[in-house]
Simulated assay, not measured.
Amino acid sequence: MANKQLELLVKVQLEREEKLQANFVQALQFTRQAEQKYQGLADYRTDYIQQSQQQGSMGLQSRQYNQFVSFIAKLDLALQQQAQQIQQAKAVLEQRRQQWLAMQKKRKALEYLLEQQKQHAMKKAARTEQLLQDEVAMQQFVRRQSPH
């Protein structure tokens, strides 16, 4: 009975572990997407500055220069916000990783306990079987020794 309960508990732990693993993978994907978005914004900012510098070499009006500076400031703000999102995503990722590993550790401990109980039960069964065989052998020996 205890083995069946432990087996059920291991199964439940495994299901929980799989859900936590899926949550970790989802957080990993979100983090990677956030990093890609950041890199895309950074690349766009670099390209925009290069293009603006090329145009600026031909001369810029003050209005164009102000638009350029304003747009770069907006890109910088977007990069800062994206960097914060990456930091938050990494914190969630680490939290989910820790939860997954903790559940994995619990499941492995339960599996070890279950295996130990199975080994104990097998040894007990083997001892019982050996005792029965010894008893049968003893009875046979006694029957052969006793005169009829």
Rank of each mutant, 00 (worst) to 15 (best):
2 A>F: 05
3 N>V: 15
8 L>R: 12
9 L>N: 04
12 V>F: 01
14 L>Q: 08
14 L>W: 02
20 L>K: 11
24 F>P: 02
26 Q>T: 11
27 A>R: 07
29 Q>G: 02
30 F>H: 09
30 F>R: 12
32 R>F: 06
34 A>S: 13
35 E>A: 11
38 Y>R: 14
43 D>K: 15
49 I>F: 10
49 I>W: 05
49 I>E: 12
50 Q>R: 10
51 Q>S: 10
53 Q>T: 06
55 Q>F: 08
58 M>I: 01
58 M>D: 13
60 L>N: 06
65 Y>L: 14
67 Q>C: 01
67 Q>D: 14
68 F>E: 01
69 V>S: 08
70 S>N: 09
70 S>L: 05
71 F>L: 15
71 F>T: 13
72 I>E: 08
72 I>D: 07
75 L>V: 05
77 L>F: 07
77 L>P: 00
77 L>M: 07
82 Q>I: 02
83 A>Q: 10
85 Q>N: 13
90 K>Y: 00
91 A>C: 01
93 L>T: 03
95 Q>I: 04
97 R>M: 09
97 R>Q: 15
104 Q>C: 04
105 K>T: 10
110 L>I: 05
110 L>T: 14
112 Y>Q: 12
115 E>C: 08
119 Q>D: 10
120 H>Q: 15
121 A>H: 09
121 A>W: 05
122 M>V: 11
122 M>C: 04
127 R>K: 15
127 R>H: 10
128 T>Y: 04
130 Q>Y: 02
130 Q>R: 14
131 L>F: 08
132 L>Y: 09
132 L>V: 03
132 L>G: 00
133 Q>E: 14
134 D>P: 00
139 Q>N: 12
141 F>K: 11
142 V>G: 00
148 H>N: 09
148 H>G: 05
